[in-house]
Amino acid sequence: MVSENSDLKDFKLKPMKCECNYLSKSDGSAILSQGHTVSLVSVNGPLDVKMANQSIEKATLEVLFSSKGGKPSVGDRYKEHVIRQTCETAILGSLYPRTGITVTIQELEDQGGFLACCINCACLALLNAGLCMRHTFAAVSCAIDALGNIQLEPARDQLDTARATMTFVFDSREKSLVTGFTEGSYSEDAYGEAVERCRAASDLVFAFYKEVVSKYSNVIG
């Protein structure tokens, strides 16, 4: 157990860099790089939407994912869906009834761990837009290689040889799992270990959020 604990503490995530308000016309925007993976997210809202899309008890959340080149694909829709569900749990939509919130995600560089980068960037953009949220959320990706080792934040070449890739999203209050997105085959034990490793790593991401936000506003707690 002791060795496992030290294992949990002894890690580092790739350097993260973020700029808020990168886009002047959006209500909130953030560009985030995690290592060599870069994504850009803009948030608009609450704004008026068509009657058909209005909901009387909460805001309608719309997530649009746009890849860098080429036509939109099924994979893009799938990512959109995952991100929308993650954001929906976090945003206090009941405070903005009959309105719409639009989250637009633009891929800039995909060098591994792209989904995690998009989710983290979306959280920063939502914070920047000043929307009320239940909690913030942080995503960490990992890969299980052929030998069964867990690798946090895998690079492109590690992803190609990996047996399974996983992305986990945690909330900031109880560090409980919000979203799990996995591909490939793995054992139950490996899954449990990967969740714990990523949960521990998510602390670093939350600390980074705090660092970014404290640059332009007062941070409580």
Binding site: K17, E19, C20, S33, V38, E109, Y216
Partner: peptide, 18 residues
């Protein structure tokens, strides 16, 4: 030299909210 879009990230827009 590795050229990447992460180079566009600066802190120019940091205080544009205010």
């Amino acid at each position: 030299v590795k050229i990447n879009f992460s180079d566009v990230i600066t802190q120019d827009h940091l205080l544009s909210l205010s």
